[in-house]
Design a protein around this nucleic acid. Structure first.
Lengths: 337, 337
DNA sequence: TTGAAAGCGCTAACAG
DNA sequence: CTGTTAGCGCTTTCAA
């Protein structure tokens, strides 16, 4: 059965399509009587305006794009959910794009989203691609970065103070009495990772503790890679008494490596993660971690994306949110204290 | 800057828009020379055909809807990822819709997707709503159910043999020597849950073991609810030596309840989950669970959705896939055996 | 207060 | 092989 169009409604209600359109959009002046009648007909005919058609007339598509590395990664799936909820209550739907941090995929998705005339794009994935810049500048699709920052892209961004997050982790460990520490980071091209490491290091430095370059090892961001790297760390002669992992996945890998090596957490080894995903509540021991205020960040990013579009060339905002320490069970005093 | 249209390309290339259109779509006959020239111009102008416009002409939107209870639930986020990958490589993008299993949300999303003229909808959420049926019948949007089944909806469906899955769990526990078992199920309106319970029960029955009605308790599908329900189970006089949980979330709740009650898993209590999500690999002990062949299921569902649309009124397919037992660390022989 | 008519960007006949 | 033309369903002047 063909979908009913505005023409069907108009004919049935004995008015013109313009009037129907006006009635629907509350534009122009339609007498209450006509309006009521039109609505009645719409209901009877189960009429649903086509967003496609109205989008073609330059209206919004009420569709947003969300670029993240991987929806199946809990950190990002939690973001996706927040975005979706916000979007939904504002009448938008969201196209989720998992990029695997591959520039090629980023590009392809960006192009796709552009072709589909989305009303805005939320970017939570890394890119070295200035291509995005082109997007923003030449086309007028609003873009905002969330939890990531891309060099040279002149878009709003909402992020966590990663430097401070690293510091928080260090202070916690320091307060517990640790001095032999190590860092497990995801590959250091990722700017947030770099900042976390820097923040951690700086806090140690301030406490008079130096962390040599061999104190930080980097690997892919996965449980498996984290496990392997952590295992190597634990096999060292001077085994650290605490490991700061730049995200929960890595921390879980470390947890597993410790278990396999027969190293008790937190008695013999403290482990601290980052992100506070659902995973960190599920491990045993539960993971001490640094939380990002994701819901708030998403809310801000969404506001920036939808709230104030195109108001001239507004000042490029860069909102930085404070992280928080969540103490659970994977950290404790160093052995022999 | 206004986006470049087919007119700009035509003008620039000195041909008509029809020729450009033909060149792009490989329709009609365009001389190689012209074609090459047109493509060159397209590139120079960075022309991207508008899907909106071509969708309006009755072509596809290359957008799919995916309805699931919650993207932030690992089971569903893993599905979402598979769907996205498949979709992406077929040129589609996917709008993710988290329904929280609320009929009201299901409805709203369905309506939204219809307005956006998606090319198909994958439903992995529960609905009692015959509304879906209306969708399918009256409009001609292809729908296929995945991992869920809705009563009375005449759509294709791809699901796991939940009955068999329950049986697998029971057999595993039986083989280990258990006889005092209990079931933790999500609220029994969910058909897959019912089947899992039935399958488990039936296997016990065949083994000559009866499971009274008080042997199965149901609760919301969350770690917290599972924990609470499991705690009650563990506090009983005749504490079970094994609990079959209808999904991993519940199983994790049970794990936590056991930990809190000082009950060792698997020494004093075996726990088995369902779904084989990433969560089950992360717990300590790692969760023994029943795996659904999700990747395959998604592939089949996708094929049904995209592959064979509208070929008359094709036979409604109902594909059932076999689950598998994944033995990890949370199950073992009952105490004192 | 209402309606006729001109597009939005593209595709699909149908002529040339 | 290429161009003209008529829409797709809707919004939006501009008249009536």
């Amino acid at each position: 059965m063909k979908a009913t169009t505005i023409y069907d409604v108009a004919k049935e209600a004995g008015v013109s399509i313009a009037t129907v359109s006006n009635a629907i959009n509350g534009k122009g002046n339609v007498s209450k009587k006509r309006r009521d009648e039109i609505f009645k007909v719409m209901e009877r005919l189960q009429y649903q305006p086509s967003v496609i058609a109205s989008a073609l007339m330059g209206k919004k598509t009420y569709t947003l794009g969300l670029l993240i590395p991987d929806v199946s990664n809990p950190f990002f799936s939690e973001i996706a959910r927040s975005v979706e909820d916000l979007a939904h209550s504002a009448g938008y739907s969201v196209i989720v794009c998992s990029t695997d941090n591959k520039d090629e995929r980023v590009d392809k998705y960006l192009r796709l989203l552009e072709q589909k005339s989305v009303d805005g794009i939320l970017i939570g994935t890394g890119t070295e691609n200035g291509e995005t810049l082109t997007q923003l500048a030449e086309k007028s699709i609003p873009i905002v970065m969330i939890a990531r920052e891309a060099a040279g892209v002149s878009a709003h961004s909402v992020l966590t103070d990663d430097f401070k997050g690293g510091g928080l982790a260090a202070e916690h460990l320091l307060a517990l009495g640790h001095s032999r520490m190590a860092i497990l980071a995801e590959k250091l091209e990722v700017s947030s990772s770099v900042e976390r490491v820097r923040g951690f290091r700086f806090a140690l430095f301030e406490a008079g503790i130096a962390l040599g370059n061999d104190g930080v090892v980097s690997c892919d961001s996965s449980i498996k890679a984290g496990k392997k790297a952590a295992a190597a760390l634990l096999a060292r002669e001077e085994r650290p008494s605490a490991i700061f992992c730049c995200n929960d996945l890595l921390a879980i890998g470390a947890l597993q490596a410790a278990k396999e090596a027969g190293v008790k957490v937190p008695e013999q080894l403290s482990i601290i993660g980052f992100d506070d995903t659902i995973l960190s509540t599920v491990t045993n021991p539960a993971l001490t971690t640094i939380a990002q205020p994701m819901d708030q960040m998403v809310k801000l990013a969404f506001g920036l994306l939808i709230g104030a579009p195109e108001s001239g060339q507004p000042i490029r905002q860069r909102i930085v949110m404070p992280p928080g320490l969540i103490v659970r069970e994977s950290t404790g005093e160093p052995p022999g204290s």
